[in-house]
Design a binder for these strands. Structure first.
Length: 554
DNA sequence: CTCGTGTTGGCAAG
DNA sequence: CTTGCCAACACGAG
């Protein structure tokens, strides 16, 4: 376990010190009691513990200009999930004789003010590898060190410490999952049981004139009841996370035989996966505890699946992306990203909006996008389908645009994993077989030939016969009329033709790959610009040639 | 340099 | 339900 310790004890003794030693536990992710080393350390030999959560306006303040209800960064479903998680955390802290102190403002600034006012001796918080927190944490740590406050910042959000893996691999993160597994080995903590219970916590100290509040409601944060008919069915919080974990683990056979690629993306009444990702994202569930439970279960069965497809393999994917993201400058963009292929994506706002607003005209794609808006969660393969469609499969829109939409609307959206998967799906990194394109028609049909998933999330198509539900534009007009869904009026026509669009995408990627190879990855903005022009010229030439051919035939 | 491998494509044939 | 083919890539081990 890594932590930084600063004991430059030049602090002037204050009269308050006689009251006993105080610790501050700063919650950000890690919204849990179980397996929380920072909380445990804060509680150890302290007379008072201040459990603090700072409401960051950057993340929580309503933004009326955003394309969906929520803040500028997070949709309402995820904000609600976070609030529920905080309410649960507060209630669990109360059971231990403590409570959650909620403050509002820029987190670094607020934290420093708390440290100043409360005579804190130990500052404890879970280490966070995201750039946003890295910047805040440097500032807070600097202050704490200069004030002689001990800082304890353990890595407990992931199975491994990304920095350890990078070091073991010679300074660079392992670029493939298999090499990651080899370098990572077994987690250091896995040999002994994790500490998962706390019997009590020291009381909260006096907090003077700091503005403390209870966990606010979504309404108190300034969000109107938007009257949306269907909200996410997933409730936030550690209690819910542990319940869901126990439910999943209770079917040992299911866990032992779990194979990620074999799940049914159209299952929504009973999803084909655990739906523990949002709880892992906020740390309501410890990934280490989950991993340990899985190892215990595997020990007691005859045979079980293995990484990458097993359930434990999914946690390792999470660590893989965390490590890649931590060790790759500009991981969240194409420019200046060492591992990202430079591709002349377009920034067609109309195509992007059609995708985002579930009106591409492909019911399978649109239904998934509605599920994203309403639930903030979709099956992994459903995410693949829409991400592929937006980028390398059909629309050739920049993956960063899709990343932003997912980043906002998913309740489990996680900076490292979201960016990693968009790099993957767009064939920008990790995965390069751009000929393998998910069909927006046949992929969904394979799992759900009757279109139950489409009918649920796109009720306008609920009476469309199953023969046409994945391609309603092919239905004869009388059938469209009978189904009360005229394509072009009640439901949009396809924004592109999949056959020709996907062929064009493949051609563009082939050209872009060749350019990346030729320039050894050092593709400048001008290079991309001229490639874009060349591709357009070729396309126009193709179209003209086709017209000529048609003229000759006609 | 070659060769094997890579979490999850689509399609047709057997 | 399984197999082979499509057309083809990057990466890393040797």
């Amino acid at each position: 376990m890594r932590f930084s310790l600063c004991l430059t004890s030049n602090q002037v003794p204050s009269p308050l010190m006689a009251l006993g030693s105080c610790s501050l536990m700063w919650f950000r992710k890690g919204l849990r009691i179980h397996d929380n080393p920072a909380l445990e350390y804060a509680a150890k030999s302290s007379d008072f513990v201040y459990p603090v959560f700072v409401i960051d306006p950057h993340y929580m303040k309503p933004d009326p200009n955003a394309f969906s209800p929520g803040s500028s960064l997070a949709g309402l479903n995820r904000i609600r999930f976070l609030i529920e998680s905080l309410v649960d955390l507060d209630s669990n802290l109360k059971k231990l004789g403590s409570r959650l102190l909620v403050l509002k403002g820029e987190p670094g600034e607020i934290l420093i003010r708390c440290l100043e006012q409360w005579n804190v001796k130990k500052l404890c918080f879970e280490y966070d590898t995201e750039p946003y927190y890295q910047a805040i944490d440097v500032r807070v740590k600097d202050y704490a060190c200069s004030a002689g406050i001990e800082v304890f910042s353990p890595v407990s959000h992931t199975l491994f410490n990304p920095a350890d893996i990078i070091q073991k691999n010679g300074g660079k993160p392992p670029l493939s999952y298999q090499s990651f597994l080899k370098v990572a080995g077994q987690p250091s903590w896995a040999s002994s049981p994790l500490s998962t219970s706390l019997s009590s916590l020291p009381p909260v100290g006096a907090y003077g004139n700091c503005e403390i509040s209870e966990v606010p409601s979504v309404k108190e944060l300034g969000y109107e009841d938007n009257g949306q008919d269907e909200l996410t069915p997933f409730r936030g919080g550690e209690s819910e996370a542990l319940k869901r974990l126990r439910d999943s683990l209770s079917d040992g056979e299911w866990v032992a035989n779990f194979e990620k690629p074999k799940g049914d993306p159209s299952a929504f009444l009973k999803p084909a996966t655990t739906v523990l990702s949002p709880y892992l994202k906020f740390g309501c569930l410890s990934s280490r505890y989950f991993y340990q439970c899985l190892q215990d279960l595997y020990k007691n069965v005859k045979k079980h699946t293995s990484p990458p497809v097993s359930l434990a393999g999914q946690l390792l994917w999470r660590d893989f992306f965390y490590t890649m993201a931590f060790g790759t400058p500009n991981f969240d963009q194409m420019k200046g990203n060492r591992i990202c292929k430079q591709i002349p994506w377009n920034s067609n706002e109309e195509l992007l909006a059609a995708w985002r607003e579930a009106r591409t005209g492909y019911p399978w794609i649109d239904a998934i996008m509605v599920q994203l808006q309403k639930w903030g969660w979709m099956h992994h393969l459903a995410r693949h389908c829409v991400a592929c469609f937006l980028t390398r499969g059909d629309l050739f829109v920049h993956w960063e645009k899709g990343r932003d939409v997912f980043g906002r609307l998913l309740i489990d959206s996680d900076w490292a994993i979201n960016n990693g998967n968009w790099l993957w799906l767009s064939c920008s990194s990790f995965f390069y077989q751009y000929n393998r394109i998910y069909s927006p028609i046949s992929f969904g049909k394979k799992y759900d030939p009757n279109g139950k998933f489409v009918r649920h999330f796109l009720p306008i198509l609920k009476d469309m016969p199953k023969e046409y539900i994945y391609e309603p534009w092919t239905a004869p007009l009388n059938i469209q009329a009978k189904a009360k869904c005229i394509v072009g009026k009640d439901y949009p026509r396809p924004v592109v033709l999949h056959d020709s669009a996907s062929k064009e995408c493949k051609r563009r990627l082939a050209e872009a790959y060749a350019l990346n190879k030729e320039l050894n990855g050092l593709v400048s903005e001008e290079d991309l610009h001229s490639l874009r022009r060349k591709l357009e010229e070729d396309q126009n030439h193709d179209i003209k040639a086709k017209r000529q051919r048609q003229k000759l035939i006609g």
